[in-house]
Amino acid sequence: MTKPVNPQKLDGHASSGHDVPKISLRNLSVTYPSGDGTPVKVVQDVSLDVSPGQFVSIVGPSGCGKSTLLRVLSGLLEPASGTALVDGNPVTHAKDRVGFMFQRDTLLPWASAEENILVGAELARIPPQYIAERVKSLIGFLRLAGFEKNLPHQLSGGMRQRVALGRLLAYEPEIFLMDEPFGALDSQTKSAMGRELLRIWTEHRRSVLFVTHDIEEAVTLSDRVVVLSARPGRVKLDVNVDFERPRDPKVLRKDIRFIEMVDRIWSALDLQPI
């Protein structure tokens, strides 16, 4: 298990101002053009702050705009109204690197595990002489040794996501935006990847915005869980998860406070009968 961590000691950015949130969404609304041309509001008036080093999960019924929020924050999508700030700057002018991870591994299919991780290091503009070393250490860290030369289709789903995680880490982002990154994995691999992510997070203490539809996963991993309503998504519930870290999912699952919290989030998700 991971060692307990003192956030002040590890997070070099904490000193740069606890007052300025790392991520700040202000009255954000996003519309998409629908099939017949009329715009559909996916996200409505969402305000949300994530402090430096905080791990926040977003849950909500499908189509409520969870992923949309991440796409706005990464600069892929323009909001209809409201602002999205990173470190107080508009996302398009953000100094910080924002790392994105999709549910699909989105690896270059013709490139080996190693070459895929290399992409992150190159785009992070790591000086060339350090790149090889950096890639090598990530391969070791993510337990991919022996598979560096394999192409994505020669790897299992969990390993592909570890490669994608390696690429993300090689990019050295200040902010992790994760869009159901383990959603396509079987439950054992999923919980292993969750532990992996916590291990990384404990070490680097970056701000994480984690979209999932697995409530237990959200509660196990996060400092905070934000529940969005059905489309158009609004913040419906914002829960602080104050279980002490490091957390052992096996113990946590049986904790009555954990069960109650999961239950509270479940009931906040107004799931429509299908």
Partner: peptide
């Protein structure tokens, strides 16, 4: 998704064309 991912990492057009 692959293109979007490279865009989030602010890859230049030349880099995306090549890679």
């Amino acid at each position: 998704d692959l293109i979007d991912l490279f865009r989030t990492m602010r890859a230049s057009r030349a880099y995306m064309t090549r890679k």
